[in-house]
């Protein structure tokens, strides 16, 4: 007989695993990937493939030659970062900028903290913000989507995003009502994806579909996205009610820019968000308010990335402040 194994209880384990969770997120992004390919064609394929391969490669090289540890590039997390990074950049971004983005995302924001689970900030967001600051021109020239077999709205090849149009217009002293005609059918187009923007910013519907999948599989809970959306609606709603000529309505905020992507795919990143339900509510609400603050009063038209990164920084504090209810602290009958 073989020797008996001896270890502490429990002796059984769920069949859930880190890998299953990570690939679940990847699957959730498939609809958005398909929509982005539909609108941006081969360019989208190029950016996504490049970004994913670059992220996995950087992780591989660091693990193999620098850290000399187990290679974990197939756990799905580098793939997620790659897709998210691709979703956050324009489809015509030069390949070498994408590479730099991957190096910053994986190398700096993930591996130097100790790899998956140890990173305080969402790697893809760090990469994106780094690129935005370093390559502002390339990062903000948004190709107009041309659906496969369709025609573009204008002759221009690139154009500003709805958020950019709004920001510039308001800065030039126009009112919201003056600017709106420049953003035709925005709600409808934004929901289905007919807008200038990053790859993954284009279609709210595809992103929401994936989010529902993640909710059903319990990869994410409703707390972070719910609080995020709620605080965006309330905060931008107040501003809008105060002065509809200077502030856009909440729906505009919800469907433009990286809102849906940020709310469902980046703010919910388990590694860089709080543990408890209460903590997640605070986290989501904070990110929502910061997003609107930056969009309305900041220098950048878009504020989702900054807002989430700032809230990532608060997570250790939030976790310490919001403990789960201990048994025995509830009703005593």
């Amino acid at each position: 007989m073989n020797l008996l194994r001896v270890s502490g209880s429990p002796h059984v384990h769920t069949d859930n695993s880190v890998k299953k969770i990570m690939y679940g997120v990847v699957y959730a992004m498939v609809p958005a990937i398909m929509v982005s390919v539909y609108f941006f064609g081969l360019d989208a394929v190029r950016v996504i493939v490049l970004s994913v391969v670059a992220c996995m490669l950087v992780e591989f090289l660091i693990q193999k030659y620098v850290l000399k540890t187990t290679i974990t590039i197939w756990d799905g997390s580098a793939m997620i970062t790659g897709i998210l990074l691709a979703f956050n950049v324009p489809s015509n971004l030069p390949w070498w900028i994408i590479m730099i983005g991957a190096i910053v995302s994986i190398g700096v924001a993930k591996m130097s903290f100790g790899g998956l689970g140890k990173n305080m900030f969402n790697p893809a967001l760090v990469g994106r913000v780094f690129l935005l600051i370093s390559f502002p021109v390339q990062m903000t020239s948004w190709p107009i989507p041309v659906p496969i077999g369709g025609t573009a709205l204008t002759d221009a090849i690139t154009g500003p995003t709805p958020l950019g149009i709004m920001k510039e217009g308001l800065a030039a002293g126009k009112t919201v009502q003056d600017i709106m005609p420049d953003i035709p059918n925005y709600v409808q187009n934004l929901m289905t994806g007919f807008q200038g923007g990053s790859l993954g910013e284009v279609s709210a519907i595809a992103l929401i579909l994936g989010a529902i999948y993640m909710l059903i599989r319990k990869i994410i809970t409703w707390h972070t996205p719910g609080a995020y959306i709620g605080s965006v609606v309330i905060f931008s709603g107040i501003l809008w009610l105060v002065d509809p000529s200077q502030y856009v309505d909440p729906l505009f905020h919800l469907v433009t820019g990286g809102m849906m992507l940020g709310v469902f795919y980046m703010a919910t990143d388990m590694v860089s968000s709080p543990m408890s339900a209460k903590g997640q509510l605070i986290f989501g609400a904070g990110a929502g308010i910061l997003t609107i603050l930056i969009r309305v009063f900041g220098a950048y038209p878009e504020g989702v990335s900054f807002a989430i990164l700032i809230m990532n920084g608060f997570v250790p504090l939030i976790d310490r402040a919001f403990k789960p209810v201990r048994f025995g602290e509830m009703v005593k009958g």
Binding site: N16, G114, G115, L116, G117, V271, P324, R326, F327, E329
Partner: peptide
């Protein structure tokens, strides 16, 4: 593996730990 901070352990703990 490293803890990925999924919160599941907290969620299932019957003592709220």
């Amino acid at each position: 593996l490293h803890c990925i901070r999924c919160g599941k352990c907290t969620h299932v703990c019957p003592m709220g730990l």
